[in-house]
Design a protein around this nucleic acid. Sequence first.
DNA 1: AACGGAACCTGAAAGC
DNA 2: TGCTTTCAGGTTCCGT
Length: 272
Amino acid sequence: MPELPEVELTARNLRTWARGATISDARIAKTRITRGGSIDARALIGRRIASVDRRGKWLRLTLDDDRRLFSHLGMTGRWVRRTIDAPEERSERLRFDVTRRDRETSLRYLDQRMFGRLLVADEDIEEWTSLGPDPLIDGVDGRLLARAIGNRKRTIKEVLMDQAVLAGIGNIQATEALWRARIDPRTKASELSSRRLGALARAIGWTLDRTLGLEEGPEIQYVEDPGAPNPFVVYGRDGEPCPRCRTTLVRIVLGGRATVLCPTCQLNQDVE
DNA sequence: AACGGAACCTGAAAGC
DNA sequence: TGCTTTCAGGTTCCGT
């Protein structure tokens, strides 16, 4: 589920909760979350969490012995803070009890569908190093987009979601940004003018900032959480009027993913 | 090489 | 009411 904004908020939470803290206990359930490796939880006990970083949708917790814990949230992963005596939750896959200044709390990684990943490594893993530029860390503008896209011929929506092109953009952020920039998601990426790419870069900044602002708080609110209203402008709103021109928004499928667009205003026309 | 589609999972919501 | 189908914000693999 999570895209760049949710992962960024998670990184900020983990810094607040755990940076500088010592792991006093660690337990990991044996599930497919650790595929591609295995984690010896006992070997983490006693280590201090030196720093927490995010790149794209990946999190990296660096320990004081320079080993790193990598975490990808997949579709349903979330890190939460609990009291030390809170009972194990249904989808709990990893638990860290951490101590800082004599205060002990418990960090839990929850992941219902287990598409997420957890890996421990001595150095940065390929999944981390192969990520493209991150819009929040590296900034994003039309030139950078043009360079990242190169002459890729897939649709701009699919290319935007390619983590090697731009790190952190998923289905929601791509949908929202393309609507904002008035670009038809089916356009071949290499066919966008530099002017269009400039508009797209600004639109990406707009939707990321907007989503980050919506999600400030102790726990990330997902759209699909029961009772939570959809906070997005067009994502999940097919059948509703376009907020800009009132045309009914339509749903198509691109690269196997639901895509909402306005058939009237997403026509790649410059508007100033 | 590039593409569409299925697979990996669980559970909530919609459909009948 | 209860059973069935569809769908979900991610990634990877497989066959054409």
